[in-house]
Simulated assay, not measured.
Amino acid sequence: MPLIPGAEPFRHDGGEVGVVLCHGFTGSPQSLRPWADYLAAKGLTVSLPLLPGHGTRWQDMQATRWEDWYAEIDREVRTLSDRCKHVFVFGLSMGGTLTLHTAARHGAAITGIALVNPSVRADQKMIGAVPALRHLVPSVQGITNDIALEGSQEVGYDRVPLHALYSLSRFWKVVHDELPQVTQPVLLMRSPQDHVVSPENSTIVLSRISATDVTDVVLERSYHVATLDHDAERIFEASWEFVQRLGADSA
């Protein structure tokens, strides 16, 4: 199945500091490509994979599960770990969920993580009906393009496949229970006006992680897909400062 234009994965071989970037549910690498380009221009090694079932058509997600999405991130982290002295993981939305899971699983092998509007719980009331509804209705209306910046567009699906959403709901429970295992430095960037993931998700993350080095940045001018919104440059700059501080011996 051909990729949607703009949904291509991205890889840049740079120095001894590596960053794996994780895009969101039903989204694509396009939502993080400006961030990846910024970090690559700073000389970092950057991996921005396309998660299984994404970037083609929503029907292709129906056969994928959270374990498939995580396996792709895990593979990229291990690849960068073989060549980089420091490895960071950054994520948007469900990409933040994947980032937290990666941090809990890999421990000290991850130097630090950055999260943009991460999701760790079900916000919509209809989620409770998904276990049964997914056998009757294949998809519901999509969640892309929650962006305040006029003219900015996110490349992703216009439908949410319910089998995949059910798997994501199970993943939230796993990650919620793992949050105390997250001990690495954390840069959390959150939008008070988010129409996809409620701000309470970030509050939960901040209250449950065990990290003591935590930087909390509020993105006042952006909606959910803040990496394509008014605060994008602020996100990029904050993440670069985060990497410089923690990987100063290599960056």
Rank of each mutant, 00 (worst) to 15 (best):
A114L: 05
A103K: 06
P199N: 08
L179E: 06
A104L: 13
F236D: 05
V217I: 08
T144C: 09
L168Y: 00
D194M: 15
S139Y: 04
T102I: 10
L219M: 02
L168C: 08
K173W: 13
S139P: 15
Y166D: 07
S222D: 00
L168W: 00
L115N: 06
H224K: 06
H224Y: 09
I204V: 11
G156F: 01
I147N: 05
R170Y: 07
R221P: 02
L188N: 14
S198K: 11
P118Q: 09
L136P: 01
V155K: 14
L187I: 08
R134V: 04
N117I: 13
D231Y: 06
V160G: 00
R190T: 13
G151W: 07
S239K: 06
Q193E: 14
D213W: 06
V137Q: 09
G128S: 07
V205C: 00
M189Q: 07
G142W: 00
R170L: 06
S152E: 04
W172C: 09
P192T: 05
P192L: 00
V196W: 10
G112Q: 11
R170N: 07
R134F: 01
A109G: 08
A108S: 08
A114I: 02
N117V: 12
Q153E: 13
R190Q: 13
L188M: 15
V175E: 01
Y166S: 06
E150F: 09
L149I: 14
F171Q: 15
Y223E: 14
E178M: 13
V175M: 03
Q153F: 14
G151C: 04
V120Q: 01
S239H: 04
H230M: 07
S119V: 12
L188W: 12
